[in-house]
Design a protein around this nucleic acid. Structure first.
Length: 476
RNA sequence: CGGGGUGUAGCGCAGUUGGUAGCGCGCUUGGUUCGGGACCAAGAGGUCGUGGGUUCAAAUCCCGUCACUCCGACCA
């Protein structure tokens, strides 16, 4: 059979991107829908990706001075009301526990939608002196936000994430931390996930509830829409005042600390799918692929084939490559398609003919090219190939994105840009009204503030003097 | 919350003017295969979402209800 039969199983990527995405997510066994509407079950293959992500990010956080901790799932409702903007922003989507132990609780407990409030409460107890600062902690956990419409990974009621929370003695230091972590994220997305991102400050409309400033990382998906793949917030003294996070400074006066928070979630797995995928399914960057190399024996019933495949697997494993032999009793073509759908970066085919010639056939998932390679020093050449794939994925997605960024100086220009699956850079006066107009007219939002406008430039919407150059896009 | 759609085997679906349930894939067993989703044979699997009504007879007609889904609105 040719590929056509396979094509019928995953929706056409250009024809119906949303359906394609759902097919990939479900049919590659990354996730399943949970029994509670809006929740997802992350299956072993999907979770393995998350574990690889965690491992990589954790190393970066630790290098940046952060330590991991864990705070409780349940938060007294009263904690939320302490910061006005925060409660207003989160109240509509908080799930609340009202009963426990067979009785009604005196105070309802929120299931955390984010942990600023509990962590702030604990920080207030822990911090006494300027010598206790800075405090830089991160937690890996689940959070719950009762969203009205949900999609696997991109927006689910419950999701896994990491949230970093820091306290600093000065405004400058806190702002520095905010930007530092933004860059840690940026490097991670580019180096590990091969996803280029635009970073910048969010407009007031898009900022985190309770933050002084939010900085976002925006990635372009294959359909030209933007995905907010991470955020870093400068919280100023908003939370330290609400939660009484004070320290005695060198000058013997009590001062409120300056706090930050930064987070990324399993949403980024949706980003990987939509940034690298193709008609055959997933394309995983080698650094986070659960299986980096799958070895498919050909004509395995003939003597020595499985044995040779196992031998090669052992060689690769010894070099730290995540390799796996697929010995299932199915036709090779079936296995080829399945592993391609699951995004395995490299496939090695070994058959009687190869063994005779002391070679293997190597298939690259990213460009679908086949080549033969000697069995001698196979681990070394595979290692090199994995690096090459990792690099070329970033180059490819960067080229794709850069080819789809345009500029506009009118509402029509913005509409035209996003309709053509572009990110649109446009000057903006800074007012909410113009931002709303773009949303209404072009169904696009301000993703990040790219730069300050130069003298004489005018707002693309109202024509008044421009303050910033903003990236507009349709977003997930 | 507003508008549309769908509920029949694990998945995808068909089921005509009401007549007692079917197809493809998958699954099980045996055999032949194996370099791009193999083939043959024999099997297993269904209170037709749910409650009521009409009828000799309901997957099919009528009323209610529930679930899912798409499009809006919402989305730190």
């Amino acid at each position: 059979m040719d590929g056509k039969q396979f094509v019928t199983q995953i929706a056409d990527i250009n024809d119906n991107f949303a359906q394609w995405y759902t097919d990939v997510v479900l049919k590659t066994e990354l996730v399943d829908y949970g029994p509670v509407k809006g929740t997802m079950v992350i299956r072993p293959y999907g979770y393995a990706i998350w574990e690889n992500i965690q491992k990589d990010m954790d190393a970066r956080f630790k290098a940046a001075g952060s330590k991991n901790a864990y705070f409780p799932l349940l938060i007294p409702m009263s904690f939320f009301t302490k910061e006005a903007e925060h409660v207003e922003g989160f109240a509509p989507e908080v799930a609340v526990v009202t009963h426990a132990g067979g009785a009604k609780l005196e105070e309802p407990l929120a299931i955390r939608p984010t942990s600023e409030t509990v962590i702030g409460t604990m920080y207030a107890k822990w911090i006494q002196s300027y010598r206790d600062l800075p405090v830089i902690m991160n937690q890996w956990c689940n959070v719950m936000r009762w969203e009205k419409t949900t999609r696997p990974f991109l927006r689910t009621s419950e999701f896994l994430w990491q949230e970093g929370h820091t306290v600093h003695a000065s405004e400058d230091e806190a702002m520095e931390e905010t930007i530092k972590m933004l860059n840690v994220y940026k490097e991670f997305f580019e180096e590990t996930l091969a996803i280029p991102v635009f970073t910048g400050r969010k407009t007031d409309k898009e900022k985190f509830a309770g933050a002084v400033a939010t900085f976002g990382l925006e990635a372009m998906m294959l359909d030209g829409k933007s995905l907010q793949i991470g955020t870093s917030h400068y919280l100023g003294q908003n939370f330290s005042k609400a939660f009484d996070i004070k320290f005695l400074d060198k000058d013997s006066t009590q001062k409120f600390g300056y706090t930050t928070s930064w987070g990324t979630s399993t949403r980024m797995i949706g980003g990987i799918i939509m940034a690298h995928g193709d008609q055959r399914g997933l394309v995983l960057p080698p650094k986070i692929a659960p299986v980096q190399v799958v070895i498919v024996p050909i004509a395995a019933h003939k003597g020595g084939v499985n044995e040779k495949a196992k031998e090669l697997e052992a060689q690769l494993l010894a070099q730290g490559i995540r390799a796996e032999v697929d010995t299932r009793d199915m036709s090779p073509g079936w296995k080829f398609n399945e592993w391609e759908m699951k995004g395995v970066p490299v496939r090695i085919e070994v058959g009687p003919r190869d063994i005779e010639n002391n070679q293997v056939v190597i298939f690259r998932r990213d460009n679908l090219e086949k080549q033969t390679a000697s069995m001698d020093n196979l681990a070394l050449s595979v290692k090199g190939l994995l690096d090459e794939i990792q690099t070329s994925l970033l180059i490819k997605s960067k080229a794709n994105r850069d080819g789809r960024v345009c500029e506009a100086d009118s509402l029509n220009g913005i509409l035209n840009g996003v309709e053509n699956k572009n990110f649109v850079k446009a000057n903006w006066c800074g007012c909410r009204e113009c931002e709303d107009k773009v949303k209404e007219f072009a169904q696009a939002t301000a993703r990040v503030i790219d730069s300050d406008a130069t003298e004489g430039e005018v707002c693309a919407i109202c024509g008044k003097p421009a303050k910033h150059k903003v990236i507009f896009a349709r977003a997930y």
